[in-house]
Simulated assay, not measured.
Amino acid sequence: MDRLDIDELPGARADLLCFLVATLAASRTLTYEWRIDHLVESCRIWLARNAVAMHWLDRVLLGQLALKIAKNELQDSGIAVRQSDVPALFTGEMTLNRASTVVQKMMKLCKESL
């Protein structure tokens, strides 16, 4: 299967960034740690699920941005992810739940950060 470059798919970079931020925030809420292994695996899963290719350096840079947003900017933007919020961040297929107001706020922040 041929993969599109991430920049050939409109909105894909923001979607991936938001997915990574949500994953980091959920992981932190549940484990009390910043799990970089979850970040790396989530990036791989998202890229495979969407049949999208991304240069390894771009993945690292986007991952660093996701960590920065999750660690510093969510709280500053009034976005708190509590344990009760975690199931609502994702659908049953582990994609972003776009109906969630928390995800909507994260997406706005991610788009502004790109």
Score class of each variant (00 low, 15 high):
Y32P: 02
E73Q: 11
Y32K: 12
K111I: 04
M54N: 08
D85W: 01
C43A: 15
V60E: 12
S42V: 10
Q64V: 13
D2R: 06
V103Y: 09
L47A: 15
I6F: 08
L114K: 08
L39K: 14
C18W: 05
D2L: 13
A48F: 00
S42R: 15
C18H: 05
E112I: 02
R28N: 05
A48Y: 00
K68L: 12
I79T: 00
L89W: 02
I6P: 00
E73K: 11
L20D: 02
I79M: 08
P10M: 03
A48S: 10
A88R: 10
H55W: 14
L39G: 09
V86E: 07
L4K: 03
L30D: 11
C110A: 15
L74D: 00
L24E: 01
N97R: 02
H55N: 13
R44I: 11
F19S: 03
V40N: 01
L4A: 05
V86Q: 12
L89A: 06
L57A: 04
V102F: 09
V21S: 01
K108M: 07
F90D: 08
T29S: 14
G63L: 06
L109T: 04
R82P: 01
H38I: 12
V81D: 01
D37I: 15
L61H: 13
N72A: 02
A80N: 14
T29M: 10
D76T: 09
Q104I: 00
N72Q: 09
N50Y: 03
D15N: 08
D15K: 01
R13T: 10
F90L: 11
A22I: 06
I69W: 01
L96V: 13
A51N: 11
T95A: 12
T101P: 13
I79F: 15
N97G: 13
L96H: 07
K111L: 04
H55L: 12
G92T: 11
L61N: 13
I36T: 06
V86C: 12
L17S: 04
T29R: 03
A14G: 01
L20G: 00
S27W: 00
A51R: 14
G78K: 14
E8S: 05
E112D: 13
S100W: 02
N72L: 06
A25G: 05
S77F: 15
V102P: 02
L39Q: 10
H55T: 06
L74S: 03
R3Y: 07
S84V: 08
A66L: 09
R59W: 01
R3P: 10
M54T: 05
L67N: 03
R13P: 01
K105P: 01
A53C: 10
Y32H: 10
W46Q: 08
S113W: 09
S27M: 03
L39R: 09
E41Y: 05
L74W: 09
V40Q: 01
F90H: 10
I6M: 02
A88M: 05
L16F: 03
D5H: 11
A53Y: 03
R13M: 07
G11S: 02
M94G: 04
T23G: 13
E8I: 02
M107T: 08
V52I: 14
E33R: 13
M94V: 10
L61E: 15
G78W: 15
W56K: 04
V21K: 02
A88E: 11
E93G: 07
P87H: 09
E93W: 07
S84W: 04
Q75R: 15
R98W: 15
S113T: 07
M54P: 12
